[in-house]
Design a protein around this nucleic acid. Structure first.
Lengths: 130, 130
DNA sequence: ACTAATAAAAGTAACAGTTATCGATATTGA
DNA sequence: TCAATATCGATAACTGTTACTTTTATTAGT
């Protein structure tokens, strides 16, 4: 019987799935509260970890202290703007090349990796030119 | 007059600089307490952030909740063992290749990146073969 | 449809890592 | 040596997250 249906979990996933940014748990909490006013923050955390375990979502940790969530579980990487802190998806053709390069000098077994790029997003880059 | 000398800061940096693992603040605190018994945890945190701002050390965030510190600020990446949780440096030749690949489809300016590899370290790989 | 079993809920307390505050101390330029 | 002030130790406060407890909702079997 393992996993039961819950409308709170649906609401969380529904909110997350049409998003391109990568909201944190409390942003999700505030948003979902609009349709589920009685939802508890604990419920949000619990369901986010359930959704992660079942592979419906993934986490993105950009080093700002909080965990971000992403319903796009396809193979992609992330860019963090050092100016405004925004997080964007970044496409990388031939990303597997990275694993190859890394494996050259490593004795263990590399099963995966996450790359976080940083710099200026296109908006901040534009502003810095003025 | 900006930055004054402090033996607490020296002790923290001295401890960190001969280390290849990447201790957390409280590991550093416990270690430095042996030579500076009265040092406060707040002092450790404060100095770690000062050392980071001055570029003497860098932070490594492997997703275990705590921030790790590394006195090796040269261009290198990190590997995290999914079995034992150890963190190792990983050398990457042709690292600039990665930036190139990433820049292909990105409008902003990429100034750097961190890659966190995960898998089995050589020790755990050895054990798993038995 | 009813019921029993139990997953999941809300609400709240607890926790870990970190940051901020404050009076006392140590370092430094004059 | 002295005044200015960065840093200190001690501790309180804050943030993100997890755990606990009682109540509610979902589901499988009749």
């Amino acid at each position: 019987m393992a996993l039961k249906h819950s409308k709170q979990r649906d609401a969380i996933y529904d909110f997350l799935k049409d998003r391109k940014d990568h909201p944190t748990a409390d942003v999700i909490y505030e948003a979902v509260r609009k349709t589920e006013p009685n939802i508890s923050l604990g419920t949000v955390y619990r369901n986010l970890s359930v959704l992660k375990e079942t592979g419906m979502i993934r986490t993105v940790e950009v080093g700002d202290g909080a965990v971000h969530f992403d319903a796009d579980v396809s193979n992609h990487n992330h860019f963090v703007c050092t100016e405004c802190g925004c997080v964007e998806d970044i496409e990388m053709k031939s990303i597997d090349k990275v694993r190859e390069i890394a494996s050259e000098n490593f004795d263990g077994k590399i099963t995966g990796f996450n790359t976080y790029f940083y710099g200026l997003c296109s908006d901040c880059l534009e502003k810095s030119k003025v």
